[in-house]
């Protein structure tokens, strides 16, 4: 309940924030797919950064969506 109230008051579950996180995840997933399909050699560190960012933002997105459901329900 405390997390819900905090999320609600901080604005983190507002539509623009959730939409932005979703959009960034989509862009990262698209870049990842393009790099894999294009078949060219890619930097290992870039791959690690990309994968970590995507996973981290996906987790953040899922948390925000759940909190949004709890806030507005």
């Amino acid at each position: 309940m405390t997390y819900v109230l905090l999320a609600s008051s901080s604005g983190w579950v507002d539509a623009p924030v959730v939409f932005t996180v979703m959009l960034v995840c989509l862009v990262l997933a698209s870049v990842r797919a393009w790099r894999a399909v294009s078949g060219a050699a890619h930097s290992r560190w870039m791959t690690i950064v990309l994968n970590s960012s995507l996973v981290g933002l996906l987790v953040l997105y899922i948390v925000l969506v759940i909190l949004r459901f709890k806030t507005l329900a």
């Binding site: 539509a15 959730v18 939409f19 979703m22 995840c25 989509l26 997933a29 698209s30 990842r32 797919a33 894999a36 399909v37 995507l54 996906l58 997105y61 899922i62 969506v65 949004r68 459901f69 507005l72 329900a73």
Partner: peptide, 28 residues
């Protein structure tokens, strides 16, 4: 490409939580 699954998760949950919120808000 597993990114396709990720994209569908984002789009389906995104619309449900954002665009359709006027439907379920208050009666989840």
């Amino acid at each position: 490409r597993p990114e396709l699954v990720v994209a569908v998760v984002l789009l389906s949950t995104g619309w449900l939580s954002l665009g359709a919120s006027n439907f379920w808000a208050g009666h989840l």
